[in-house]
Design a protein around this nucleic acid. Structure first.
Lengths: 332, 332
DNA sequence: GATTATTTTGACAACGATGTCCAGTCGTAG
DNA sequence: CTACGACTGGACATCGTTGTCAAAATAATC
């Protein structure tokens, strides 16, 4: 900036004014400065600016997702980028891997970079460790999973209701021998989905104690094995609910191996590409990651802009998409 | 930091030394400082530090991908994060959307944040616009697509060779009426794949002028329509090569609609989830995004560490994965 | 105990920008 | 011709940190 000022023959502050479109600069000097800055290929250093700027805005935020390589997270990431990019805010994206240690390390890295806000998918038992920052007015929005040990905005899917919807759907097709395949129990959404599913069975008069529940299935292979086991037991279930993408894939593989794809009903939580191209098409409880991402970004921006209303949890409804696998009837 | 120094009753520079693990601090003062910084919940401001620090490192890099929501990009993003995170480097990820304007805007945003390096998937005709920065020693690695108008490292898939492999595979199964479905021609990889495919046909003695080539298919629907058109023409192809994921999906839909899934061969460029669960399984030329991402990250780190060797393009080989659709034989 | 070598420490300027505030310049009205 | 406000421009301190360098404290040596 000094160099530009020198080349243009003006003061350094005048350059700052031109670059930041502040008023009070004549057309003549304005173009002199712009010329000079073009010639030197000058670019404003935002970091240096934010050091002095009111509110210390860095125009960057930290986004912590289950994993940037997971399609659900990818959609959220994208929605974020779109909503925040319009305001000139850049996004640091990082992957949680459902590791509490990692969560803390990543949050620390974000804080060290003085982000203007944090959007977090947590896995720690309590997120009280961000209270100091949050009470110093650091905007904070939780996404996909609700916060524990701290009051802050959150945007989540109606996990329990969605799972209950699946249960009701299967029961209404005449199923009474249902099974549940779930993810790690330290993941809040997994617990919620199980709760919603089981409670709905209870409401519909199905004895819940006999319902096979297999949990802590975190990948395709363990889900496949669990499903195989269930399906080859005596009195196998006539319908399966799987609480997550990879678990659904594992269940699909098990069903195919046993030639049961068209005989045992399946509903999965989470939509996925080509679900309609399977045989039969896979019925799912679809989440809306783009809406979740957009809403979370909007809440964050509102907080950044000084919104002081008390924290609130926003629920984005899920949607049952019928494609065939969830509409299979139990054997007569 | 001032406050920490005050509370610990030491000079500000001593605090800096402790925080940065510099030598020459006695155990006694060290723990005094650590105590104070704990009490105040102090966190180093990297931005301020990088202002003065030798080399002005910000410990952040900019990553420009086709779209963070696309699984291929997601894998690359993840590999990047893993390789760079180990060095404490955070990643700004952004989506290109194959829009040249957007590319320039995003690169400018990265530069304004003084990233330590840039990893770019370009769509502009020429990337000469980054020459000033690059010659001022800004590390730069192109990914997936090779640079034009500037000399820099690149990490790409062997697009032409991979497509040729597909052609050879189909021809060896007896096909002679092949068709090509391709993406937008302003995308370098799309052009390379077409070239590789067509040239291989030539080498194998198939008259290339009669091969139907449909290009500029950027989404599933346009690909589906193009495929439908090809397949319902007189003398339809007995084998199709699709140059990209979404195009492959479109072709799959068209084949299914016409009941030809098991009669017309299909090979797609790009692997995808559940490809083996389709009926028939979809034969693909798989890329290795994790390897591409890892290698690009390694090259970037090497450059950051001062590697001065002349720019080089690294090619990550693709892999033909046989799953059934590419092994269908032509009707007798 | 004096002197030197070594370690530990802090004062200060600087990084690149912006906020504050004051000094010119100019046009216009009295 | 003076006075006054509006506009324009620049000097300077400052943000939080680190590099430089010299001072102070401590240890080692004779």
């Amino acid at each position: 900036m000094r160099h530009v000022a020198a080349l243009a023959g003006v003061g350094i502050k005048t350059v700052s004014r031109v670059i930041n479109d502040e008023p009070g600069v004549s057309e003549a000097t304005r173009s002199k400065v712009l010329n000079a800055s073009q010639q030197l290929n000058y670019q404003l250093d935002m970091a240096a600016g934010s050091l002095r700027r009111a509110g210390r805005r860095t125009l960057s935020v930290g986004l912590l997702l289950p994993s940037v390589s997971n399609p659900f997270s990818g959609e959220i990431n994208r929605a974020m980028e779109d909503a925040l990019g319009a305001r000139g805010i850049a996004v640091f994206a990082a992957s949680l891997d459902d590791d509490p240690q990692r969560e803390k390390a990543i949050v620390a890295a974000f804080l060290g970079r003085r982000v203007d806000g944090l959007i977090l998918t947590p896995i720690t038992r309590s997120q009280a460790y961000v209270i100091p920052e949050h009470s110093r007015d650091l905007p904070l929005v939780f996404i996909d999973r609700e916060p524990v040990g701290i009051e802050a905005d959150a945007v989540v899917t109606d996990n329990a209701t969605g799972a209950a919807k699946a249960a009701r759907h299967l029961i209404s097709r005449g199923h009474s021998r249902l099974a549940y395949l779930g993810d790690r129990t330290d993941i809040q959404t997994a617990r919620e989905r199980r709760r919603g599913f089981i409670e709905e069975l209870g409401r519909q008069g199905i004895p819940t104690s006999t319902v096979p529940v297999r949990e802590n299935l975190h990948d395709e292979e363990s889900a496949r094995l669990a499903a195989l086991e269930l399906l080859t037991a005596t009195e196998p279930p006539t319908a399966i609910f799987s609480s997550q993408n990879l678990v659904t894939f594992g269940a699909m593989r098990a069903l195919r191996e046993l030639g049961l794809s068209k005989r045992v009903a399946l509903i999965g939580f989470d939509d996925f590409t080509l679900a309609d191209m399977m045989d039969p098409g896979v019925t799912v409880i679809a989440q809306h990651p783009e809406r979740i991402g957009k809403l979370a970004a909007e809440r964050l921006l509102a907080r950044i802009d000084g919104d002081k209303q008390s924290p609130h949890t926003y629920v984005v409804p899920s949607e049952l998409i019928q494609r065939g696998s969830g509409e299979l009837l139990p054997p007569a």
